[in-house]
Simulated scan of single mutants.
Amino acid sequence: MPKERRDPIEAFGVMYATDELGCWVWQREKRAGYGIFWDGERQVRAHRFAYQMACGEIPDGHVIDHVCRNRACVNPEHLEPVTHKENSHRGQGSWRKRQMQVNCDRGHPLHGENLYTDARGRRACKVCRKMHREDFHARNPNYRREWRERHRATERL
């Protein structure tokens, strides 16, 4: 006789514990700190399931941000749909740290005339870029001549 399955919403309710900050901390399987939950059809992120059950569908182009900064939290009051860009801005990851940097690794200021921003939005120090370029050409003195020769050869084709 097949085993009778519990309602996913009922099962969800016993898989977390409340902490002193009001987070509903996921107690079962986790991947990269996020709870994993079987919704009756497939494995889903527990926080996404919690948000959808409490608030409805996640808007297109949005992800769920943990306002409490706790990846294991499944409390819908701590979850908010935001764009991926907004989620990155709010986060604590390496991208955020680089954006908050006021000086490069060598101590040069990362603002004003010394700030270089490439097409992908990455920031760099112009002084360090120049030093790197000069060092590269000092180690590869024939690079410019060889590049011009390759470039001219492709123009002739």
Rank of each mutant, 00 (worst) to 15 (best):
A119K: 12
W95V: 13
T18E: 08
Q99R: 06
G35E: 05
P81S: 14
H132F: 09
R71N: 01
P8K: 10
L110I: 03
G33I: 07
E57V: 10
H78A: 09
D118H: 14
A119H: 14
C104L: 02
E80F: 08
R133K: 06
F136L: 00
I58Q: 12
Q101P: 01
R150A: 13
N140T: 01
T154Q: 12
T18A: 01
G61F: 12
H78M: 02
R133V: 08
C55F: 15
V14R: 03
E41Q: 04
A46P: 00
R98W: 07
G121L: 14
K126Y: 11
A72Y: 04
R145N: 06
K30H: 02
V44I: 11
H151E: 07
G22Q: 03
A11D: 09
E80K: 15
R45L: 14
R150V: 02
D7N: 13
Q43E: 11
V63D: 06
C125N: 11
R122D: 14
F49I: 14
N103R: 11
Y116P: 04
W24N: 10
Q99Y: 05
C55N: 15
C23W: 00
M131H: 10
D105A: 05
G22L: 07
R69Y: 03
F49R: 14
H108E: 06
G40Q: 09
G40P: 06
P141S: 02
V25R: 08
D19L: 05
D105S: 08
E113G: 02
R28I: 10
E149M: 06
E57H: 11
N75C: 06
N103L: 06
D135M: 07
V67D: 15
